[in-house]
Design a protein around this nucleic acid. Structure first.
Length: 475
DNA sequence: CCTGGAGTTGTCCTA
DNA sequence: TTAGGACAACTCCAG
């Protein structure tokens, strides 16, 4: 019996078996050794945060189950791990799907070069973007800086993204033991037991769960997405972001499930959802062409801005104790579930940046640690968008008023009460601004401001004026 | 080459 | 009570 040629399939942010081009290529090439490497060595400032690690733990377990326990796990510098494997096994080829974080691009180029030097066939594939960042450019060849022309002209005029690939029917796995491989537990991805349990109550993790969630969204929720997505109390968004981030589902699977004809009518739910998918593409486009996006102002004019350093207020923001219920509810949602509704993300970001005058990178770092969907491209692009320093950013004078936003998008305070239940005794109109309730009302509601719920940590009007003044001075 | 219109997500003031 | 304008600057592109 002659052994088939051996291929390594390196899973990264593509933790799925369906629509996985690298997997299909590896299967076509012979027997397959599937590996995962936790590489904190090359990640610099952007090693995965705590919430992401929790998700990863469960996603790897799910993938490993789908692989009948054949996933081989490693930890450390991926360049060393891959070299060691290539030296110790009769590997003829290595396949992976591309990632786009600057540190991964650099690392992967080195690894590819190492492997080619050894005469090992090494190929990468596109599994997580509808359009490769280098394939979209303006007529003059430079990258887009504005979303709408990026999407309408840059993306939609290119050939339609490929159809999703079916999972392989039969896979010939490499089954012998591999030196140095670890268990998933050895990666030590889980945080304290209580936080882990709290996070995991809210999520079903893995490829099958992602497909199920999308199916439900597509059938029941998408039709009303345009209107509903602004209301955090409704379950009107897809909540697919962490699944997309870890590649449990691909944008191609979403794109082709949704009737492309709906694009004709830009006002409806499906078209708006596809635009959100395109915003994810835009973030990757920006990160690819401006790799310093996570660390530096996209608009360097903002380098002159003098942010405040307010550790006391900052901790209140992180812990959801600002005294502004919509802000506090959002920050508590983040902590308890690893997620925050998109509308509320904008509100808490505007509050930190504009009212508190804290650098967007502080917010970016907190989200990086707490979000199960933490994604270098989307997180950096979105924080810079809110700060006004980013591409196609919000104008400096757009400062969210957390009370008005709360009244408009959570009129009954239903979302607020989910995370700030101590306000439940108040009539709806005062849930958005408990400090305006009379002493009698507060007493009747069993609330002592400053004890049961914080007093507002700042004055909205004066901090707004301060921000307008300072941001205007940048011009 | 020039020009005008349009552009994810808001708030406040004035009439 | 409500609607319209002001609050910038810049990018992109069609004409």
């Amino acid at each position: 019996m002659t052994a088939k040629p051996l291929s390594i399939l390196w899973f990264r942010q593509d933790l799925r078996l369906s629509d996985n081009p690298a997997l299909n290529a590896a299967v076509a090439a012979g027997s397959v050794l599937p590996i995962y490497i936790l590489d904190d060595v090359n990640a610099g400032n952007w090693a995965m945060g705590a919430a992401s690690r929790t998700w990863l733990h469960h996603s790897l377990e799910s993938l490993n189950r789908a692989l009948d326990g054949r996933l081989r796990i490693f930890r450390g510098d991926a360049r060393e791990v891959v070299s060691r494997l290539a030296a110790s096994l009769p590997v003829e080829s290595v396949f992976w799907n591309r990632c786009y974080e600057p540190w991964r691009i650099k690392r992967d180029a080195q690894i590819k070069s190492d492997l080619l030097d050894r005469g090992i066939d090494t190929r990468s594939f596109n599994a997580s973007l509808l359009w490769e960042p280098w394939s979209v450019s303006k007529n003059d060849g430079t990258p887009y800086r504005v979303f709408t022309p990026f999407y309408q002209k840059g993306c939609l005029s290119l050939p339609t993204p490929r159809q999703p690939l079916a999972p392989p029917k039969h896979i010939d796995w490499h089954t012998s033991a591999v030196d140095g491989s670890l268990s998933i537990e050895d990666l030590e991805l889980l945080p304290t037991a209580s936080w882990h349990q709290s996070l995991c109550q809210h999520w079903q993790i893995g490829e099958a769960a992602a497909a199920q969630k999308f199916e439900t969204f597509w059938q029941a929720t998408l039709i009303d997405y345009k209107r509903g997505r602004d209301f955090p109390a409704l379950d009107a968004t897809s909540r697919l972001s962490p699944h997309l981030h870890f590649g449990e589902i691909s944008p191609h699977q979403l794109w082709h499930q949704i009737d492309i004809a709906s694009l004709q009518d830009r006002s409806d739910g499906p078209a708006h959802f596809l635009r959100e998918i395109a915003w994810r593409e835009f973030s990757y486009h920006l990160l690819y062409h401006f790799p310093e996006l996570p660390e530096q102002n996209f608009n360097r004019k903002f380098d002159r801005f003098e942010w405040l350093d307010e550790p006391v207020g900052l901790q209140a923001w992180r812990e959801g104790r600002t005294g502004f219920p919509i802000v506090d509810a959002g920050m508590r949602e983040l902590w308890q579930t690893g997620y925050m509704h998109n509308r509320v993300r904008m509100i808490v970001a505007s509050f930190l940046i504009k009212n508190m005058l804290v650098h967007w990178r502080i917010g970016e770092n907190w989200f990086w640690d707490c979000l199960v969907d933490a994604d270098l491209a989307s997180n950096a692009a979105s924080w810079q968008w809110c700060a006004g320093s980013g591409a196609d950013a919000a104008p400096y004078f757009r400062i969210f008023n957390p009370v008005l936003q709360s009244e408009k998008f959570d009129p009954e305070g239903e979302y607020l009460l989910r995370y700030c239940p101590e306000l439940s005794g108040l009539p709806a109109r005062y849930r958005h601004k408990p400090w305006q309730a009379s002493e009698e009302l507060l007493q009747a509601s069993n609330i002592k401001l400053g004890e049961d719920y914080p007093l507002p940590m700042l004055d909205l009007k004066t901090t707004r004026e301060r921000a307008l003044e300072r941001f205007k001075a940048l011009a």
